[in-house]
Structures are given as C-alpha cells and as structure tokens.
C-alpha cells in the first residue's frame, strides 16, 4: 500500500513537471475500475442475465431452426417426435421466393429515397455545424444542437411517433429513415469539414472570394469523396434500418417477415431471412468496394 501513500512519487522523478501523475491519479484510476465492475454486476442482477439461462435457451434455438428447414414432423408411436427431410417442403419454400421480390424492392426503395433525402438535407446543416466555416458561435451551436437533438431519438421511436401522425405504412418509415440518415451524414460530414486543410480556405479569402465561393472552391473538393462515401455508408445502414422498421409496420420485407412469424410459418420466414442476408451482404460488398476506390 506504500504506492498509494500521497507523497512518495511527488518528490521523485517528476518533481516540478506540470501535469505529472500524482499519487491520487492511481487512487482515481483504481476507483474507476471498481465502479465499472460494480456497474456490471448491478446491471447483470437486475436483468437476470446468467450463463445458465443462456445454456437452457440453446436447445430451443435448435428446435426453432429445424422448423425453419424443410423437415417434416413425424409423431412416433411411443409418443416421441422425429423430423424427416421432405423434398415437397423444400419445393414449397423455393416456390415462396418470388413473392418476396415485391416487398424486397419496396424496402430498397425506402432505403434509396431516405438515404438520398437525408444526405441532401445534411449538407447545409453540416456546413453550419462546422466551426471553421461559421463566424457566429450561436449559429454553430444552434446547428450542432439541432443535429445532436435529432440524433438522440432512436429510429424505432421516431417511426412509432411518425406512425402516430401519418398512420401505419411506408410514409412514416421513409420519414424515420430519412431523419436517421440526415443525423448520420450531417455528423460525419461536419467532422470531415472541420478536419480539412485550412490552407485553400485561407487562399480563397485572400483572393476576395465570398463565403459561398470559398466553400465551393476551398471546401467542397476536399470533402466530396468522403461525402459520397458517407452517402453509400448510410444507404447500407438504411437497408437494414428499413427492414427493421418493416417489423413495426412500415411496409417492405420486414413487414412480410413479421407476418410469416405471426402465422408461425417459420419456413417462409427462413426464406425471407436468407434473402435479407443475401441482399445486405451484396449491397455492403458493392458499397465497400466503391468507398475504397473513392478514398
């Protein structure tokens, strides 16, 4: 415990250097560690989380999985249950696929419209929320505040509120995902703008350019590749977000999935999940390739 005694290092190596760790630094770090462990234990208790419960859930998952796959249920004479592979069920599952196309396209359209609108709306706000471009601190803080406030609202809550106003359907979904895209792109873009090389901007001021001209010639070329990358990135997230919002009634493939789960049609649900997986992987891959080439 001599290490914690609030004298020892002070007199030693770092004596007189401003910002050197004091004995209390160690005490504080230890206290933070203890606090974090206590926080975890408190949370785990309150949510009844335990490895035992996790282990008991795993067989249930297996049970669910087998009902998603083309296995026929066979009641054994002794009262037990067996599962047998069925080509007929497989054919049914494959035949179900084309009906997923319509809802899938609807989800993609929601994502495209929302990503586009949100990214466009983000531009002016991101410019106003960049400290190096805005002369008036109040304007900067207003834009920042607006951005941060919107970002605190989870997209599901947003969708629920908007559904209350516009009724269940595609429109509140689009609005929710648009607002979500806006917050993501505005935040990332304003950070990119704040990180630009200030030199060209200074040069634009020196040639007598006005504010808009200075932004167009000094800022836009510097952040355009990042901006396009953010738009692609937010589109990726939007595909997933609009799927999830479909679960709460905003149309699209999420809604179809929800319906088949409610009807306990697990084999249909499985096909929908497969399609979602394939599409998300495909879009993420394409978008990642594009972004790599941009930056």
């Amino acid at each position: 415990m001599s290490r914690l005694s609030p004298q020892a290092p002070d007199r030693g190596l770092f004596a007189g250097i401003p910002g050197a760790p004091t004995p209390w630094t160690r005490v504080r770090n230890l206290a933070i560690g203890v606090l974090l462990v206590a926080l975890y234990l408190w949370s785990a208790r309150a949510t009844d989380f335990s490895l035992g419960r996790l282990a008991r859930g795993v067989p249930e998952m297996g049970n669910l999985l087998i009902r998603m796959l083309p296995f026929e249920r066979v009641d054994l004479p002794g009262g037990g249950v067996a599962w047998r592979w069925s080509n007929e069920l497989l054919r049914q599952q494959i035949a179900f696929l084309p009906s997923v196309w319509g809802p899938l396209m609807e989800t993609l359209r929601i994502a495209i419209v929302s990503a586009t609108l949100g990214s466009l709306l983000a531009v002016p706000v991101a410019l106003l929320a960049s400290r190096n471009l805005v002369r008036y601190p109040w304007l900067y803080w207003l834009a920042r505040g607006f951005m941060n406030l919107l970002r605190t609202i989870p997209d599901l809550v947003l969708a629920a509120v908007l559904a209350g106003a516009f009724g269940v359907g595609v429109l509140p979904g689009i609005l929710a995902v648009t607002i979500f895209s806006f917050t993501v792109v505005a935040k990332l873009l304003s950070e990119s703008i704040e990180a630009i090389d200030p030199g060209p901007l200074e040069a634009m001021r020196a040639v007598g350019a006005n504010r808009l001209q200075a932004i167009a010639f000094g800022v836009v070329p510097q952040v355009l590749p990042q901006y396009i990358a953010y738009v692609l990135y937010v589109f990726e997230i939007d595909v997933r977000a609009s799927t999830v919002l479909g679960l709460v009634g905003a149309g699209g493939i999420g809604f179809t999935l929800q319906t088949s789960l409610r009807l306990l049609n697990y084999r249909a649900a499985f096909m929908i999940i497969l399609v979602i997986l394939a599409v998300v992987v495909l879009i993420d891959t394409i978008s990642n390739r594009l972004r790599e080439r941009l930056l």
């Binding site: 040069a203 040639v207 200075a214």
Partner: peptide
Amino acid sequence: RTKVGMIFQNFNLVNRSTVLRNVLAGRLG
C-alpha cells in the same frame, strides 16, 4: 483583396482540383 495577390509557404492549392480550376479561383472576386 482582389487587388492583392498572395502566395503561401504551403502553396494552399486545392489538391484534388485541376490546375486550371485552381488558377481560375483567382477570378472569384
């Protein structure tokens, strides 16, 4: 400022723009 040209230590060109566009920026005023 349009009457006062300035040259900087770090050139302060827009690296991603063409040379012509950089020079035309001198006409912005």
